[in-house]
Write a protein that binds this DNA or RNA. Sequence first.
DNA 1: TGTACATCAGTGAACGCGCGTTCACTGATGTAC
DNA 2: TGTACATCAGTGAACGCGCGTTCACTGATGTAC
Lengths: 203, 203
Amino acid sequence: MPKKQYHHGDLKNALVQAGIEILNEEGIGALSLRKVAGRAGVSHSAPYAHFKDKQAMIAAISTEGFQQLYQRINRVAEANQDEPARLLFETAYAYVRFALDAPASFKVMFSGILEQEKDHPDFVKISKQSFERLVELASRCQAAGLLHSGPPELQALSLWSLVHGFTALLLERQIPSYILEGSPLKELLRQVLNQVTREAIAG
Amino acid sequence: MPKKQYHHGDLKNALVQAGIEILNEEGIGALSLRKVAGRAGVSHSAPYAHFKDKQAMIAAISTEGFQQLYQRINRVAEANQDEPARLLFETAYAYVRFALDAPASFKVMFSGILEQEKDHPDFVKISKQSFERLVELASRCQAAGLLHSGPPELQALSLWSLVHGFTALLLERQIPSYILEGSPLKELLRQVLNQVTREAIAG
DNA sequence: TGTACATCAGTGAACGCGCGTTCACTGATGTAC
DNA sequence: TGTACATCAGTGAACGCGCGTTCACTGATGTAC
């Protein structure tokens, strides 16, 4: 792997990766085009060969974040196909884990830094896919008697809201410390989920 | 009300109000000390007589946001003291309404722009109060058979997670449009809440 | 296989901008006598 | 009631900074013949 080529070869991806690193090491406020370029080892104007402007780069970073989240959830889904209760819990836990592992990615994805989503079709596509997968999960849990009946899209939205809210509050340190100290995170998540299922999900 | 006094009289509050206005008219990115000062009609260095730095001003804005949210919820609580189901729903709806009315305030409050909460005791106090009120609400709903039994703190956390998540997803336009178009917002929230209660809450 | 040339993906100087913060200052106010 | 003075709450110039973006450029690559 030669080090000093004039042409990078895969700069676009390298920039997205650099962006994610900066994000999670230094926070959202530190994410600038110039820093990303510097980290990728190119001049500060090089990104313009690959992204129209800063917005476009953030869109790419955000999309990559959704792809990573989606991948993680897919992996969990494959490992727990036959047990709806486990599937539900492990999917939720994967969501929380992702946010803890890459908090700033999570915030960028869900904190509306990205303004006109319409202009970024990849982004729209991946988030639609994710929701469809969740609806499927809700259906299976209903079929197994774990969740109340009703339109699975609404169950999906409720589950997503619950887990997303829990994650967001956790990330923003809004959950009172006496509760966090009461039980390990995984157990806390299980208890939170148990409040909304018809029967307790397996320990 | 004389207009041109050298001494403003209540500049600290005026700055917080100006900050909230800028936030909700122009977005988080537009919130700068200089703009806030300008909007309040003072020079750009005047704020330093009242706030140590930008962080301190954001803390004050955030705290004011929590106070406003808390007030709204109090008002709802007083109007629905005797009916736990209504109380639950109207409290949740007040939360959502607040976020829709002042989206950028909501984001500042919950998006971790504020870094060291420990340094801002007012802030810690108001958020503790809010959670206690929510635990109380959960208890009453359990007593009325609306919610599953169990530690009320955990029910409170679940409810908060659910409503906060719903609100955040709504604000960030993450909820698929076909779901939003399916029913009015208030109805959608009711359905989401119904997925987690033991029995449907009144229409 | 060698050469000419178009195209691509970088460089680096330059731009204007708004920002947070500091500082010497000054006008207004409140208090002691 | 009038005066002296300390204190308070503003002003405005100045600072250095990093930013997004543009632009003329140049080195590397791929293609046609």
